[in-house]
Nucleic acid binder design. Structure first.
Length: 423
RNA sequence: GGAGAGAUGGCAGAGUGGUCGAAUGCGGCGGUCUUGAAAACCGUUGAUCUUCACGGGUCCGGGGGUUCGAAUCCCUCUCUCUCCGCCA
């Protein structure tokens, strides 16, 4: 939890831990420590100055009531100089704190002790694998060809309507989307998550609260005229429900789930990574969000991982769970587990879920707190996970389940699709 | 989009320049009474920064201003409500 307190008490620890994320924090942390000291000194100075002014103003009031105008005038003169002084201090203090805050938001969250060191995706650790990878034979088609063959997803039409990365789902393809969304929401609500339907545009404060701003500014679509952002994930609006909230100690756990379309600019992506459904600008996702007491957040994380795993199992997709290394983790996360499913025709693993504990990093920005048993106010912990992101689930489903010129729908999904095969 | 009204503590709602961080009611918490509960009565009940502590500062939608002194006056932004227009 990156607070001023931690930074001034153990700056070396912060620097060491952020190095795990390949973030060189030395310079920033040293500056912050200095600025924090300045902040407190100036604050004390200002407080003293204001206290004097306040006291003298009260004296003037008393004198005026007694009709002692001249006495009052004398004190007024004294106050004038104090006022000038406090203005000076205030200006210094503002300057100091502005710089301090702008540096603070540049620091990513501290990774927890379980996070392995590493630079990128190749250093992630596989912690579990499940379900058999099917042997499709040499005639297997990648999902974008299957989509075309059965006319269920039209990428070119999306280009016409909007641009690349905005596919149009048609017929059984559209129905499949709706089926998956409903199935995921049903499973989540059955597990005690409250379903919410949030706005898909958020304001700046929300973007800042969960850490997308300022870090990921360029990754979000921005409606300039109103200064709203299209959500890159339901995490943003749903977690922000609890911005500026102080929970009671019996309000836990808070469990929410939401479906939203997600919008990502994905600037800089190219090649086979963006082929077909692999990476889109608009996609559907069902998200789970939890708010927990600090002592429970890691148990909650395990529960969420098991929950997501159970959904993947119902779909029968071959999967693996990765513990992300420091270099591959997001700015705000303390630990992240990724779920990947194997897309058999492409012969590659596709990320379909990311489950993270943010500890108090988001809560600190959100001012999301709770009163503990002693009535003391503490930062809560926030967590979230995809359960699940649709496009790559669909990609894997189409590819892995192609058989005899058809796509077989998994049993668990059939009540939602209303059909058991495509083609 | 046009016209008007408003934004105060968990909620409701007083407060138009000087012990106002803020009356009162409700709610919450503690107690008395009761076998227990309810009712009644009594007490208590915001956040934040700083300090080892005592204490001090800040906060009445956000920002700025006037004044010795602002919840109260002025400017500005945002939001909410009512009426009209438009409309899924």
């Amino acid at each position: 939890m990156l607070t001023f307190k931690l930074l001034r008490e153990d700056p070396e620890y912060v620097i060491r831990k952020l190095a795990v994320k390949n973030f060189d924090a030395k310079e920033i942390v040293e500056k912050i420590v200095l600025l924090d000291k300045g902040r407190r000194t100036l604050q004390t100075e200002l407080d003293g100055c204001l206290a004097q002014q306040k006291q003298k103003a009260a004296e003037i009031g008393a004198l005026m009531k007694k009709g002692l105008r001249e006495e009052a005038e004398k004190i007024k003169a004294e106050v004038a100089s104090l006022k000038e002084k406090s203005k000076e201090i205030e200006a210094k203090s503002d300057e100091n704190n502005t710089e301090l805050n702008s540096l603070m938001v540049l620091l990513p969250n501290i990774p927890c002790d379980l996070v392995p060191e590493g630079k990128g995706a190749e250093d992630n650790v596989v912690v579990k694998m499940g379900n058999e990878i099917p042997d499709l034979g040499p005639d297997a088609l990648p999902h974008w060809e299957l989509a075309k063959k059965f006319d269920i997803i039209d990428f070119d039409l999306g280009v016409k309507l909007t641009g690349a990365g905005f596919p149009v789902y048609k017929g059984k393809g559209a129905r499949l989307q709706r089926a998956l969304i409903n199935m995921f929401l049903d499973i989540n609500t059955a597990a005690g998550y409250l379903e919410v339907e949030p706005p898909v545009m958020v304001n700046e404060a929300s973007g800042f609260g969960t850490g997308q701003l300022p870090d990921k500014e360029g990754q979000m679509y921005h409606a300039n005229l109103d200064n709203y952002y299209l959500v890159p994930t339901a995490e943003v609006p749903v977690t922000n429900i609890y911005r500026d909230v102080i929970l009671g100690c019996n309000d836990f756990p808070v469990k929410m789930t939401a479906y939203t379309p997600c919008f990502r600019r994905e600037a800089g992506s190219y090649g086979k990574d963006v082929r077909g459904l692999n990476r889109l600008h608009q996609f559907d996702k069902v998200e789970i969000v939890r708010i927990e007491k600090p002592e429970n957040s890691y148990a909650a994380l395990d529960e969420m991982i098991a929950h997501v795993e159970s959904i993947v199992n119902r779909l029968g997709l071959p999967y693996r769970i990765l513990r992300l290394c420091g270099g591959d983790m997001s700015f705000t996360s303390a630990i992240t587990y990724d779920f990947e499913v194997y897309s058999a025709a492409q012969g590659r693993w596709l990320e379909i879920s990311s489950v993270s504990n943010f500890e108090s990093y988001q809560a600190n920005r959100l001012k999301l707190r709770y009163k503990d048993e002693n009535g003391k106010i503490q930062l809560a912990h926030t967590l979230n996970g995809s359960s699940l992101a649709l496009p790559r689930v669909v990609a894997a489903l189409l590819e892995n389940n192609q058989k005899d010129g058809k796509i077989i729908i998994p049993e668990a999904l059939r009540p939602y699709t209303g059909f058991d095969c495509i083609g």
